[in-house]
């Protein structure tokens, strides 16, 4: 157990962070909160990847004569891509939120559901 926690501390924290974010994504009613959760979730997964690539005693994966061991560069590459994807998703999500605010006057999920239930079937704008 101790070995599990010490040997995999990074992973455990990554999981904890991911799940905090995941919770916010699905349990929060406020749409912006959901997106904050999404960012925490995804960044935590990135931490998980970066931790996979770490080697004890390794140096940054840049060619250097004195290096004995390098860290694994592949997770870094993947996460560079993933960060951009994550930000793009966030941007689209915020755009949607702004439009939702304009159309419904609120960004709380439960209120939007209420508004929809109370009729008003019209096009926006």
């Amino acid at each position: 157990m101790v070995e599990l926690i010490l040997g995999k501390f990074n992973y455990l924290i990554a999981i904890a962070l991911a799940m905090i974010g995941f919770y916010a994504m699905i349990a929060k009613s406020n749409l912006i909160k959901k997106i904050i959760g999404m960012n925490i979730f995804q960044t935590a997964v990135f931490l998980f990847y970066i931790s996979i690539g770490k080697v004890h005693g390794g140096t940054a994966p840049i060619v250097w004569d004195k290096a004995v061991l390098y860290d694994n560069p592949l997770p870094h590459v993947l996460i560079l891509t993933a960060i951009v994807v994550s930000v793009s998703t966030t941007a689209v999500a915020f755009a949607l939120i702004i439009r939702i605010q304009k159309a419904f006057g609120t960004i709380e999920e439960d209120k939007i559901i209420e508004i929809k239930r109370n009729g008003y079937k019209g096009d926006m704008e």
């Binding site: 690539g53 940054a60 840049i62 997770p75 870094h76 996460i79 960060i83 951009v84 994550s86 930000v87």
Partner: peptide, 14 residues
């Protein structure tokens, strides 16, 4: 963790 490129991107983009 020696992921400097990623760290840089995260700092600017994230």
């Amino acid at each position: 963790l020696n992921a400097v490129d990623v760290a840089f991107t995260e700092a600017s983009v994230g």
